[in-house]
Amino acid sequence: MIFDLSFGTIGIISENIAEVIVNEGTIMTLEMCEEYDAFLEEQFPHPFAILVNKLHNYSYTFEAKLHIASLENLRAIASVTYNEHGAQETKKLVKRRAADNWNLKEFSGLQMGRHKALEWLETELVDSMIKK
C-alpha cells in the first residue's frame, strides 16, 4: 500500500518496514516531520524500520534536521542514494545527529541498493528483537 503525504509517499512494504520517497525539491519542515511521525506511529505501534529511497533531491529546515527519525519504535534506517549529493546529505544529517546513535546504513541505488537495504533492515529488526 502506498500513501500520499504532503511531502511525498510512504509505502508499507511489510508489517514492520516502510519505504519513504520525498518529492523532488521539497524542503522538509518540522510540520512535515510531525505529519510523517504521526503516520508512522499509527501504522507501526511496534518496532519497525524505514527505507529512505532518495530518488529525488530535497532538503530539511534546521528544526526538521533536529527532529527527524526520533520515534521510539524505530529500530533501523536504510538510506538508498543514487548520486554523490544524496550520499553527502545523508552523511551530514547523520553527523549532526551523532548523539542519537542512529542505526543507519547507506546503500548505493546503482548497485542493487534497494534490495540490499531491505535485506539489511530485516536482519536489523530480527537482531533488535533478540536483544530485547
Results as ranks from 00 to 15, higher is better:
V20T: 15
I21H: 08
I21D: 03
I21C: 06
I21T: 14
E24M: 08
G25P: 05
G25R: 02
G25N: 09
I27D: 14
I27Y: 11
M28V: 15
T29S: 02
L30C: 05
L30H: 03
L30I: 14
E31Q: 12
C33E: 11
E34M: 10
E34C: 01
E34K: 15
E35T: 09
Y36N: 07
D37T: 13
A38K: 11
F39C: 11
F39W: 14
L40H: 05
E41A: 09
Q43D: 06
F44R: 06
P47V: 05
P47M: 01
V52M: 11
K54V: 09
Y58A: 05
S59R: 02
S59D: 08
Y60L: 01
T61I: 10
T61L: 04
A64I: 00
K65R: 15
H67N: 11
I68T: 00
I68A: 05
I68G: 03
I68P: 03
S70N: 13
L71T: 04
E72G: 02
L74S: 04
L74Y: 04
R75C: 06
A78G: 04
V80K: 00
T81H: 14
N83E: 14
E84L: 08
E84I: 12
H85D: 13
G86I: 07
Q88A: 10
Q88K: 05
T90S: 14
K91Q: 15
K91V: 14
K91E: 14
K91A: 15
K92W: 05
V94T: 12
K95I: 10
R97D: 06
R97T: 11
R97S: 13
A99P: 02
D100M: 07
W102M: 01
N103E: 14
L104W: 09
K105A: 08
K105H: 09
E106Q: 06
F107M: 03
S108T: 13
S108K: 01
L110Y: 02
L110K: 11
M112A: 13
G113T: 04
G113L: 00
H115P: 01
H115C: 07
K116M: 07
W120T: 00
E122M: 06
T123M: 08
T123E: 14
T123C: 07
E124M: 12
E124P: 03
E124N: 09
